[in-house]
Design a protein around this nucleic acid. Sequence first.
DNA 1: TTACTATATGAGTATATAGTCATATAACCC
DNA 2: GGGTTATATGACTATATACTCATATAGTAA
Lengths: 109, 109
Amino acid sequence: MLDAKKQLLFDRQAEVVKAVAHPLRIAIVNYLRDGEQCVCDIAEYVDSERSNVSRHLSVMVAAGILESRKEGLKVIYTLKTPCILKFFECITEVLRQQIEDSEELLKAM
Amino acid sequence: MLDAKKQLLFDRQAEVVKAVAHPLRIAIVNYLRDGEQCVCDIAEYVDSERSNVSRHLSVMVAAGILESRKEGLKVIYTLKTPCILKFFECITEVLRQQIEDSEELLKAM
DNA sequence: TTACTATATGAGTATATAGTCATATAACCC
DNA sequence: GGGTTATATGACTATATACTCATATAGTAA
């Protein structure tokens, strides 16, 4: 059975994972690979309301994925842990496997 | 701006990430590291209703994370892409960073 | 056949999350 | 000071998700 310590760990891990479990947030993380950006530029890139983007950014900061600092009027967001990018390599591998499976299925038809 | 192709990719990636963005599902994936298991044993391990566990498992199969096969009355679930484990290394690194930050804060107090 | 077990799923409820709009705050420029 | 801009947040609605209970299905064993 799951002990309380492990359960707590999985809760914390789930918080982090949830923070990137959204297409918009994934787009943001990918955008920030190329360098830090303000809310307004991110909002333009992902084509969504600034207020909405601001909320998504807060969630990712709370999860420890992003960092922010104020610069004049703007708030600049950065990737805090570049390891989050390795994360997407894993996800891409899952997707690649899915496509291979579809191809197998197609061949068998 | 995000083009349609990238948007589609991020949608697919989000599907996979969502499939592990839950403490119970993370517990299941960790349990399956040590080998395949049936629904009943998984349900006992995570201490949840079988019907609930069964649904969580279906989601992860749909996302391409798990595989299943029938064996008598039981349905056995396996990790399909072991790369999903690397995934958790990244998450753990984010958590470790968070703890380091807390320590820094504490020292500064 | 009947009884039993493991799993899946429909229907319902409760909760969480995303998105929008209006408004507040903070920093800037005049 | 007043006006403007960037960001954050409260309040709301719409939607998605998790969970439970009851039931259906498929296999097993008598």
